[in-house]
Design a protein around this nucleic acid. Structure first.
Lengths: 224, 224
DNA sequence: CGTTATTGATAGTATTACTATTTTAATTAA
DNA sequence: TTAATTAAAATAGTAATACTATCAATAACG
């Protein structure tokens, strides 16, 4: 069911990078290794200098691709949502029932595939999404970034899911709230289950997470 | 209904500070002004140097209270949850119905009071909680911090709410998941409504947030 | 009045987050 | 094949950040 990599090229908004990293081997190296480094060190300890030594390049070279590490995080996040949308659309292509579509989506979000796409370790990228991606928007420049469309891919994904919710219950007043609550919730619970288990419930694996949020979604949608 | 300030002294875990800021006027100054500065600049732009000049003190003096700005954020967050617990217990003291208790709690979380407690601007502190507080735990040192009990106040608050959920539906399997989903959800939606409105639904004021999450909670609890 | 704790003043270091410039290497186009 | 263009490496440097250390001044306290 996983789409072949050759057919997928992530469309990440141009404003995020200075030079498209997907067009050169150094750029791809930056992406590949930054995922590993950010996952290992955490975003705050991660620096372009460390990345540079890791890929046997220089800080200056990396700065030609990304203005700063925050933009790199935004790129990874944006790429993730671009990829997720692609997968979702493909998986739901031949489904008619919106409840099935929603179920599909929630499972996709909660149970990450551990494959490698375009050289990028999706398992680690998912961990970054859970632990670091909110730092991409929880910043003072958020309005400015948003004005330039740098959250487009995430917003698009949310919009698609919201439409599915509305298919299930036309006129439901809070589709976006529900969808972002589920998405951010999944990421939080993943983190909690690993680091702050008393903030979640056992077993907090992907399957029970999907179960919890799918039930939640359906109860809420039908209740209103 | 607001408890009198004289009766409340926040109990923040000792490991968070080097010297208790609530015991000196410089300490209180640090707390008061850091709330304003973090709210104005955002946590990443906020520095002890800027805070020092702001309160006409020195960096070194501030470092005598907090190891680093991250610990200061943890203090503010911890103080917020200590205060919230105090308020919640007081408000629910003479209620028997757990559904009413939950309703109370959700309204308290979604509709912040704009008062000043012990000199601390609660309106601004709430904004910090929404925008910055997740950065207090989304770090690599989280396990170490947790081992030292530095998230105690938040976990305690979650535990109290989870117990209320269990009062409503004994045996409900996901009380903690539900509670943290609601709490973090409220904070996210607050932020989204101000900065990324397409990720939420209008009107995203406190009242409709409370409405959304209260309905969500009840549907989910009763469904299972 | 003397002791102790608190803060201020000053200084210094390692690291981070960049920017600029020049050299080398690799591609491509004439 | 050479010249022209582009990408990357090497090197250097700056301002700001995140601290640490030392010592003097002062206030509080018994």
């Amino acid at each position: 069911m996983t789409p072949s990599l050759s057919t997928f090229s992530a469309s990440v908004n141009e404003g995020i990078f200075l030079k498209d990293p997907s067009t050169s081997s150094l750029g791809l190296n930056i992406l590949t290794k930054s995922i590993i480094l950010i996952d290992d060190l955490g975003f705050e300890q991660f620096t372009f200098r460390k990345l540079a030594t890791d890929i046997h390049s220089t800080e200056a070279s990396i700065y030609r691709y990304f203005e700063n590490k925050h933009k790199l995080l935004l790129y990874l996040s944006s790429w993730y949502w671009g990829w997720s949308e692609y997968k979702l659309v493909l998986r739901n292509a031949n489904l008619a029932c919106p409840v099935q579509k929603l179920n599909n989506a929630i499972h996709m979000l909660a149970i990450p595939e551990k494959t490698v796409i375009n050289g990028l370790d999706m398992g680690r990228l998912f961990d970054i999404i859970c632990q670091e991606s909110s730092k991409a928007y929880l910043v003072t420049e958020v309005d400015n970034l948003n004005r330039h469309g740098l959250f487009y891919n995430y917003k698009k994904f949310v919009a698609i899911l919201s439409d599915i919710v509305l298919e299930i219950h036309p006129g439901y007043p809070y589709p976006h709230m529900l969808v972002t609550t589920i998405i951010e919730g999944i990421h939080h619970q993943k983190f909690f289950s690993e680091h702050l288990p008393s903030l979640t419930d056992k077993p907090a694996d992907g399957a029970s997470l999907a179960d919890f949020y799918y039930t939640l979604a359906l109860s809420v949608i039908q209740k209103n």
